[in-house]
Design a protein around this nucleic acid. Structure first.
Length: 448
RNA sequence: GGCCCUAUCGUCUAACGGUUAGGACAUGAGCUUUUCAAGCUCAGAAUCAGGGUUCGAUUCCCUGUGGGGUCACCA
């Protein structure tokens, strides 16, 4: 009973690796890793027309990026002789036969290989749902191969799971109704019955099956949009499974320890992008400044990349401000478009009316405030110029005169924007020289 | 349509007959050192319907309804 656990993820390369497949792969992977077993990636490309090399590459790329490493790799298209052998064997033993066909549609073959259906009721246990029974009579003598070199899905799957020693089949619940016929083939082959666990579907917002039209992106697209693998994995893990408590943030290591087939959800789950974003933000905050900086940098237009290279220290200091404003790195582009990054590197153009703040509207008064700020801030040592020291210098004065009257002009003078980070943070990022220069520019505008 | 699976806040879910039905995302309100963001606090929000079984049903059974899947010489 201590048989080594072997699981597999068996996608057909007729589409990209999307969120739903990722979850199936993750659960199979977790179960194998948890039991020190083997995880197999098997490309089911028996349909030569629809299978595409680029999809296979996308699947491998996605799994690799997520860190779902596999121990063995197979392509069904390379296993023809194995299927052929079993096909011949089945016919020999009268479990299958060559069938002369009546041509009903064009393109049909005159002869195919059919499975001799014993017409039994098949009952199997699903680890997530309990016992499920089917009467296979309605299946008839189904086709298992077009010819000896062209096996069909159901047959190839069963042969492969048998040959590869797969012990646990974890797959989408669209596989439930396929299971009885596969069990029939299995029994004819003399193969042991693996443990089955069927996962509920992942649905689009309107509860329809997640499809390309309904926002089912490839994981590689999520990667390109600036999502982190740990966020994707955390997110999909919790759609259809939970660790048995209120934990929302869960690492792959923890999942590996806690994963249980018995705790699988039975009903479909709607894909909730907001929660993914929330998780991704959480994981972004955990990144080092350097690492986050690389992600941000790669999404900057060339002119800003140039500015960053010329002023690396401003860039690193501004990263936390950026992180507060995004939930994935792709949103850096929006920040750029809205001008929320440029002002860190280039002195802004001011709108004189915006400079006053809400309560004041007198150029002489506001410029006097800023004069005072220049004096206070100017007295800070260059080497001691930080967000905290600027705040310490300015705070009492601002409180005395009215924070809105002083802090708004200060912030606007530094950013040139109605919305931005707070003035102390800005000063700390920009440094003494730039801070003073911008304040003086604002005074110049007011007194002109 | 036949067969199979399924049903707790808007969404993801917890509660293996006894809870004020819990948490998270989202939403709303408030707080915080001006604005924006972030953060913190609080609030509203659910057991599909009808029958049983039981002292007691979200939980077990039946029926209905909704949703999904599957019925290929696709996978």
């Amino acid at each position: 009973m201590n048989k080594k656990v072997i699981t597999r993820f068996a996608p057909s390369p007729t589409g990209v690796l999307h969120i739903g497949s990722v979850r199936t792969a993750l659960y199979s992977w977790l179960y194998a890793r948890q039991n020190k077993g083997t995880f197999i990636l098997r490309i089911e490309d028996t349909d030569k027309e629809r299978s595409k090399k680029e999809y296979e590459e996308n699947i491998v790329e996605g799994l690799t990026w997520l860190g779902l490493n596999y121990d063995e790799f197979y392509r069904q298209s390379e296993r023809g002789s194995i299927y052929k052998k079993h096909l011949e064997d089945l016919i020999e033993k009268r479990f299958a036969y060559l069938s002369k066909e009546v041509i009903a549609e064009e393109g049909q073959r005159t002869e195919v290989i059919r499975f001799k259906n014993p017409n039994r009721v098949i009952t199997f246990r699903d680890e997530a749902r309990g016992d499920i029974s089917f009467d296979t009579t309605e299946l008839g003598d189904f086709v298992i191969a077009k010819d000896f070199d062209t096996p069909l899905y159901h047959f190839a799957v069963v042969v492969d799971d048998f040959e590869m020693g797969v012990t646990h089949i974890i797959r989408g619940d669209d596989g439930i109704s396929n299971t009885p016929r596969q069990i029939l083939i299995q029994e004819a082959l003399g193969a042991p019955r693996p443990v089955y666990a069927h996962l509920p579907m992942i649905l689009a917002a309107d509860k329809s099956k997640l499809s390309k039209r309904h926002g089912a992106l490839a994981v590689t697209e999520y990667r390109d949009e600036g999502y982190l693998p740990e966020a994707i994995l955390n997110f999909v893990a919790l759609m259809g499974w939970n660790p048995g408590n209120d934990q929302e943030i869960i690492s792959v290591n923890e999942m590996t320890k806690l994963f249980m087939l018995e705790k699988l959800q039975k009903a479909g789950a709607v894909f909730n992008i907001d929660k993914l974003k929330w998780l991704n933000k959480h994981y972004i905050k955990l990144l080092s400044i350097e690492r986050a900086g690389e992600e941000v940098f790669s999404r900057l237009p060339p002119d800003l990349q140039k500015s960053v290279k010329e002023n690396q220290s401003v860039f690193l200091k501004m990263i936390p401000v950026i992180i507060d404003r995004i939930s994935n790195f792709g949103e850096v582009k929006t920040l750029v478009d809205e001008g929320e990054i440029e002002y860190f590197f280039r002195d802004p153009e001011y709108n004189k009316n915006e400079l006053y703040g809400k309560e004041e509207h007198n150029p002489a008064v506001t410029s006097a405030y800023i004069d005072k700020l220049v004096e206070l801030i100017g007295s800070i040592d260059q080497g001691n110029f930080t967000e905290e020291t600027v705040k310490a210098k300015v705070w009492d004065y601002a409180s005395e005169v009215g924070r809105g009257r002083v802090l708004w002009p200060m912030r606007y003078a530094l950013s040139g924007r109605a919305k931005s980070a707070d003035p102390f943070t800005l000063a700390g990022i920009l440094g003494k020289e730039t801070t003073i220069r911008r304040l003086q520019q604002a005074i110049k505008l007011l007194t002109a």
